[in-house]
Nucleic acid binder design. Structure first.
Length: 427
DNA sequence: CGATCTATGTCTGTTAGCGT
DNA sequence: ACGCTAACAGACATAGATCG
């Protein structure tokens, strides 16, 4: 007997009219919830209130008040973004849907969100007991979001929000989100942690980086089947787990915002983080146009043991170079070049690049062509030594060619400088 | 499953500095 | 004034990851 036949059998056992009434009556409403009745129909609203010192993982919810104003910088194009005027303008938003697609067939049966008042963090969940309640929920939600300027999500930019927007179109409800900014925390999370944790799913980020442990959590992946089961048999008890899961997701969203905000505010103790995280944070702070904090992060990284900081030296030097902090960059290039002298030449690029960078610095910044020449010669020596033990690749050949060219140019520049000196002497 | 963003690598265009 | 070159910035294509 197939699963489908089972379900059909169950559906046949009660008439449609009966089953709808039974369903709505039998979902003994979940804890903290009530029925909202509107002109457009009814739906379930579940609300939970948290005091601002409620701890979720490493943070108290109220800590957002200290860092919210920096949050617009999580986006690459923060310069063109509306800034966050108040933590009360943020709506933390997460849905549970009937699937993963963004097409018309995917229905958000639960819209969860959280927001701050002066004294509390409040989560609310809008839940429809059947498709007929969707219009009422959508109208209610649209009214509600008018009070907010920013939407905070995790992949909501490509998942939750387009799905919700689609529902307004399909229900022919006028809708505009033109004034609503989106702060999607997925991309910056991936940027910071994709190398240091196994996955950047929200559940893993909260566990690995926010100190949040869930007990008996219902994975979001089960939400569609639990909802379908509820639609079929009217038993609402398994939905409790979905409500809780969604509520915790919203809390985590706020906590993640606090964590990211703390980094942008320079409040996070970087000495306790692993080297890769510190490097990523430094880069992010640089892009977020917070150069002092970026430098602080890089300085912390440079205190780490040689082996652990080694692979970041060139990248950090590149940032200093871009910001025209040449003295700092030179120190790192020298350090990186030293690694190349002692260790075996494993990666041609990494042992030669610091020498090339230094040569560029002496040629273009200092005009000390002889210094630059010495560095190019050293690079050439290393490249040739390398060629003798290893068949050169196309890249190796290109690199060698460029080095020769650089050497030739520096020779003429050095020679010209020399002859000018002679000219000066002769007069 | 779909849509979207990002990292990465390659290329193409622009700019600054230099010499003729 | 003009052209050349190195270095950098921006464009483009591609592959991977995340959402329930």
């Amino acid at each position: 007997m197939s699963h489908l036949q089972d379900r059909l059998q169950r559906l046949r056992s009660t008439s449609p009219v009966q089953s709808t009434e039974k369903k709505n009556r039998d979902l003994s409403l979940p804890s903290n919830s009530r029925l909202v009745e509107t002109n457009e129909g009814s739906f379930v609203l579940r609300q939970c209130k948290y005091s601002l010192d409620h701890l979720h993982g490493h943070y108290a919810l109220g800590q957002l008040c200290e860092v919210y104003d920096l949050l617009s910088r999580i986006s690459k194009r923060f310069q063109t973004l509306k800034s966050v005027e108040s933590y009360r303008d943020l709506l933390f938003f997460d849905t549970e849907t009937t699937g993963l697609g963004v097409g018309a067939g995917n229905v958000p049966f639960m819209i969860g969100y959280g927001y701050y008042t002066d004294t509390e963090f409040i989560t609310e969940q809008l839940f429809i007991r059947n498709p007929g309640e969707e219009r009422a929920m959508l109208h209610y939600f649209y009214e509600f979001i008018q009070g907010f300027t920013h939407l905070v999500t995790y992949n909501g930019r490509t998942f939750d929000w387009p799905i919700v927007k689609n529902r307004y179109v399909l229900n022919r409800i006028l809708f505009s989100d033109a004034d609503l900014e989106q702060l999607d925390l997925l991309y910056i999370s991936r940027n910071l942690w994709k190398n240091s944790i196994i996955s950047c799913r929200l559940s893993n980020v909260e566990e690995q980086r926010l100190g949040i442990r869930r007990h008996n959590d219902v994975s979001g992946a089960y939400a569609p089947s639990i909802y379908f089961q509820y639609l079929a048999d009217g038993d609402g008890s398994p939905l409790e787990g979905v409500f809780l899961h969604n509520e915790l997701d919203v809390l985590t969203l706020a906590t993640l915002a606090i964590h990211l905000g703390s980094i942008l505010a320079g409040q996070l103790d970087l000495t306790k983080l692993n080297t890769d995280d510190v490097f990523r944070i430094g880069n992010w702070l640089d892009q977020a146009n917070l150069p002092e904090l970026a430098e602080a992060a890089f300085r912390e990284l440079l205190k780490r043991p040689a082996q652990s900081k080694r692979k970041y030296l060139l990248s950090i030097a590149t940032v200093f170079k871009k910001n025209r902090q040449f003295e700092q960059a030179v120190l790192l290039w020298r350090e990186a070049a030293e690694f190349g002298r002692t260790g075996q030449a494993l990666h041609a690029l990494h042992t030669l690049q610091p020498l090339i960078e230094l040569a560029m610095y002496y040629e273009h910044q200092c005009k000390q062509y002889n210094q630059a020449l010495d560095l190019v010669d050293e690079a050439l020596n290393r490249a040739e030594r390398r060629q003798s033990i290893r068949r050169p690749s196309d890249k190796d050949r290109l690199l060698l060619e460029q080095l020769m060219k650089r050497r030739a140019r520096l020779m003429t520049k050095a020679y010209r400088g020399l002859s000018e000196d002679v000219d000066l002497l002769s007069f």
